[in-house]
């Protein structure tokens, strides 16, 4: 579904991604593992169209996304749950969810979708009329994920969903990620807590200095000596 071929990208004169090739097929859970500054978030931002690649190709179902703006990429069925939640703080949770279904295709059946998403995340239903900014960090993360699901995406990308949350809350957030995966949504996830993500990932890529250095199934990567030494400290 999603294919990155020899992608190069960065910010102004700084090239962060040197050579990234990866693919995500329908029904998969793919994770990108890497240290700080390896280019994980940059990869997701390039896929979303927030930064323009300086080389290589990104294709979605064979269609080159180079000329598309971020809304155009949302149209292709790719939605991101951004790092740091990025909710609309002075709007209610319900309004945040409605904005998740902004595109006409999603808007057409917004009521049914809202019901599906709220069934998946009952905790969010209890908070519908509250301002998003008034929720705790964990609840905000749930709303951010629910908002992403509102678009009924073909591919949902998570950027560090557990960042900045207490260990107990991290568990809950992973529970929610698992529920998204169980609902059949294709997922691309970037996460510092690699133990959990590699366990649920069908495949994983290891990114170092803007290059993919390794790729395998999730559980295999978890057993790999290099991964263990570099990212698990064992």
């Amino acid at each position: 579904m999603l294919r990155l071929e020899n992608l190069r990208a960065g910010y102004g004169p700084v090239t962060v991604l040197q050579d990234v090739s990866l693919e995500v097929n329908a029904g998969e859970v793919v994770t990108i593992v890497g240290g700080n500054g390896a280019g994980k978030t940059t990869t997701l931002r390039a896929i979303c169209g927030l930064i323009k690649p300086t080389g290589g190709r990104i294709t979605v179902d064979g269609k080159d996304t180079a000329r598309l703006s971020p809304p155009g990429i949302v149209d292709l069925g790719i939605t991101m749950v951004p790092e740091g939640r990025q909710l609309f703080p002075f709007m209610t949770v319900r309004e945040n969810l409605m904005l998740g279904a902004y595109k006409p295709a999603a808007r057409a059946r917004i009521e049914e979708r809202m019901e599906e998403v709220l069934t998946l995340f009952p905790r969010v239903r209890e908070r519908l009329t509250q301002l998003a900014g008034s929720l705790s960090g964990g609840e905000q993360q749930m709303v951010a994920i629910a908002r992403g699901m509102m678009a009924n995406p073909k591919l949902l990308m998570f950027d560090e969903p557990s960042l900045g949350l207490a260990p107990l809350i991290v568990k809950q957030v992973f529970g929610i990620v698992d529920r998204v995966v169980a609902s059949g949504t294709t997922v691309l996830i970037v996460e510092q807590n690699i133990v959990h993500t590699l366990q649920i990932a069908t495949r994983g890529y290891v990114l170092e200095n803007g290059k993919v250095v390794m790729s395998d199934t999730g559980p295999a990567l978890l057993k790999d000596p290099h991964v263990k030494r570099a990212y698990l400290g064992v």
């Binding site: 809304p71 991101m80 609309f88």
Partner: peptide
């Protein structure tokens, strides 16, 4: 209102 409250997240919702 979404654009006013979070310029970064709005395009991710598909808002131009």
């Amino acid at each position: 209102r979404a654009v006013a409250q979070n310029r970064y997240a709005a395009p991710l919702m598909g808002i131009d």
